[in-house]
Simulated scan of single mutants.
Amino acid sequence: MSTVLSVKNLRLYFTTRKGVVKAVDNISFDLKKGETLAIVGESGCGKSSLAKALIRLLPRNVHTYSGEILIDGNDVMKLSDEMFRRLIRWRKISMVFQGAQNSLNPVLKVGFQVAEPLMIHNNVSREDALAEAKKYLRLVGIHESFAERYPFELSGGMKQRAVIAMALITHPEIIILDEPTSALDVITQANIINLLKKIKNELGLSYIFITHDIAVTSELADRVAVMYAGEIVEISDADEFYYRPKHPYAEKLMASVPTLRTDKKLEFIPGAPPSLINPPQGCRFNPRCPYAFEKCLKESPPPYEVKSGNIVRCWLYHEGKR
């Protein structure tokens, strides 16, 4: 499969009163055409900041924004903000934001909001854009009559479907899904996941699926990237990750997930995530890691390829301890 997105040494730091927050710190990964890459980790590890860095929706307090983001081989970091808005955002890469209720304007009809990206980014007339919006509402399982309704008239699941239609309407290659099911009940979550799988297969899309719910990712992910304290500490094929996670943090995450068909003792991760202003010296997981040794406390481990395409940042593998 061809690579549609390649991220190299991406950094996004924020200036705050307490210091510089290293929300995204030297992250690299690739996304193949038609692939779903799930990004998992505890709250506050930098997942949503990574999404904002990719689509360049940045707050005013940015301290550092550097690295390479290659879409179809072109480094979009070299584009000005205006050119990125015109050529890339919503044309090549779009996003389903966390919390559909907050993504929809309560005083505008749903159909207009779904159609708006076409009018802004593709210069499509209002009439033609509204007709296309109805088509995409049908695609995500909403009757076209709901185009004339306001967001408060839709259920939570229907709002989420409308936001997905909004992300799809300009035919982007890549869609970032930031916690698309977090505010929904279990049945509605399953319906949304099935919808995303159907759309992905029909349109040949590539997904970046950001979540802290590992169980949800198992339905959709082809590969899994584990974030901890602003860094990606492991990237593995999904089948490999769910049964044999490599990084100690990933092991603890999987050990905390209950299963239906096996009787296992659930574990927890001791301590708390570190500050992204003053992260620990060496490996950032070392204060919570049961396997930490002297080198872990002093030096940050580089990425180590344990298998073709499977990466882990852990001294246990460099030192031959695993």
Rank of each mutant, 00 (worst) to 15 (best):
M1T: 09
M1D: 05
S2K: 13
V4I: 13
S6H: 11
L12T: 13
L12W: 03
R17S: 12
K18I: 11
A23N: 05
V24S: 03
I27K: 03
S28W: 06
K32V: 10
K33Q: 13
G34R: 09
E42R: 12
K47I: 14
S48L: 12
A51M: 07
R56I: 01
L57D: 01
P59F: 07
G67V: 07
I69D: 00
D72E: 15
D72C: 06
D75A: 10
V76K: 08
S80R: 09
M83D: 15
S94D: 09
M95H: 04
M95A: 09
Q98G: 04
Q98L: 07
Q101L: 14
N102W: 14
V107C: 08
G111R: 05
Q113E: 13
A115C: 06
P117G: 04
M119T: 00
A131T: 02
E132H: 00
A133Q: 02
A133G: 06
L137C: 08
R138K: 11
V140T: 08
V140K: 07
I142M: 11
F146T: 01
R149G: 06
R149S: 12
E153Q: 14
S155D: 10
G156M: 00
G156L: 07
K159A: 03
R161L: 13
A162K: 04
I164E: 05
I169P: 04
T170C: 15
I174L: 10
T181V: 09
A183W: 03
V186S: 07
V186H: 05
I187V: 15
Q189Y: 00
I192G: 00
N194R: 14
L195D: 01
I199E: 01
L203K: 11
G204F: 01
I208Y: 04
I208E: 00
F209Y: 11
F209G: 03
I210K: 01
I210L: 08
I210A: 00
E219S: 09
D222I: 09
D222S: 05
V226S: 04
M227L: 15
G230W: 06
G230A: 11
S236Q: 14
D237E: 15
D239L: 04
F241G: 04
F241C: 04
Y242T: 09
Y243A: 14
K246I: 06
P248Y: 02
Y249K: 04
Y249A: 01
A250K: 02
E251P: 00
M254L: 15
D263E: 11
F268C: 08
P270G: 05
N278Y: 12
Q281V: 13
G282Q: 12
G282K: 14
C283E: 07
R284I: 03
F285H: 08
P287C: 11
C289D: 01
A292M: 10
E299K: 13
P302N: 13
K307E: 14
R313I: 00
W315T: 07
Y317K: 03
H318N: 09
H318T: 03
H318P: 01
